[in-house]
């Protein structure tokens, strides 16, 4: 079979040295097929591959594993009582949570319980699942022991079969990206966005809907992840984007482009942080006081997050 040139030398170069010519490559001088890697796994050194989906057992346990997988792909359909926007877990966890470099569930399964500075305590795997519902899905945390949580655990366990329990497993999370040579920039990010992302995610980040179903998920606005989500950190977003976007063209952007477009995306309005402390200033001081969050700062003339108390939970329309 044919494969896309992996461009190891360019990637290595981009990683090793500061990028001096980081002006965004615009569509008109882009090559016919941009150089990209087959998938997000490339820069992770991952060696583990989860079992083939066709081998999910045909028994009572297998049914629950399959249900967990369904929740990943179609969260609104299989967990409507907990999903508050039009995203699905798979949108940020490629291949139903099986892909190295796209925060795979198998990498997470073997890594908890673990201490997290986000909330200054030891978190369980269930805490992490609940967190993605509350923040990434702008929804409600499924209670411990609920069908949805149990199914996601069963699916994660099944994916991780054979992997030693060790949080240093290669392929976990999103791969590291070099620090940007120039500070990430909104204006440069906008031109990266227009040349590389708008075709799918649309001009205002609203995504695209066909026959009532979301095809390309929204990146900001009322139907996207909220201000408490991991993707709201410019660094997490740059890592995710570098390894996974444009869709199907992993590592085709330069690291600088990934940082700039992450800044542009995370410099837009989105639903309030559910940990809201009554004002944008206090909420920033308590949860966002770091250089990777633009919450509570003024970007492009807008004080981000200044939208009042979180809206009450509403299951998504589509």
């Amino acid at each position: 079979m044919k494969s896309t040139p992996l461009l190891m030398s360019r990637l290595a170069g981009a990683l090793a040295l500061a990028c001096v010519v980081c002006a965004p490559v615009l569509a008109q001088n882009a090559p016919v097929e941009p150089k990209s890697a087959l998938n997000a796994a490339l820069l992770t050194g991952a060696t583990f591959s989860p079992p083939d989906i066709a081998t999910i057992p045909k028994d009572e346990f297998g049914k629950v594993v399959q249900f967990g997988r369904n929740v990943m792909y179609d969260t609104k359909k299989y967990a409507p009582q907990y999903a508050g926007n039009s995203l699905n877990c798979v949108n940020c966890h490629t291949d139903g949570g099986a892909m190295a470099g796209s925060a795979p569930l198998w990498g997470a399964w073997v890594s908890y319980p673990a201490y997290r500075s986000k909330n200054k305590k030891v978190n369980t795997y269930e805490d992490r699942l609940q967190g993605c519902f509350r923040f990434s899905m702008n929804g409600k945390a499924p209670p411990l022991g609920s069908d949805v949580l149990v199914a996601l655990e069963a699916y994660s366990y099944w994916l991780a079969k054979g992997l030693p329990v060790d949080e240093k497993v290669a392929g976990r999370g999103y791969p590291d990206i070099p620090e940007p040579a120039q500070a990430p920039d909104f204006v440069r990010g906008k031109s990266v966005y227009e040349a590389n992302c708008a075709i799918c995610h649309a001009a205002n980040g609203e995504g695209r809907v066909v026959n009532g179903a979301v095809v390309f998920p929204p990146l900001w606005g009322a139907q996207s992840f909220n201000w408490g989500a991991g993707m709201g950190s410019i660094k997490n977003a740059a890592k995710f984007i570098y390894a996974n976007m444009p869709y199907g063209q992993s590592y085709s952007l330069t690291p600088q482009q990934a940082w700039d477009v992450a800044y542009y995306m995370d410099g837009q309005e989105r639903p309030q942080d559910p940990r809201w402390e009554g004002s944008v200033v206090v909420t920033r001081a308590k949860y966002h006081d770091n250089k990777n969050s633009l919450y509570g700062t003024t970007v492009n003339g807008i004080l981000l997050g200044d939208t009042g108390a979180p809206k009450p939970f509403q299951p998504p329309k589509s």
């Binding site: 079979m1 494969s3 890697a37 087959l38 490629t94 291949d95 066909v210 026959n211 095809v215």
Partner: peptide, 26 residues
Amino acid sequence: VYGDWKAGIPACFRCHAAGGVGVPPY
């Protein structure tokens, strides 16, 4: 419907919509 990510092939329906009905304008 699902693609084959090991070979770098995303699902056709992720870009051409569920059922392959297309996503105007592109």
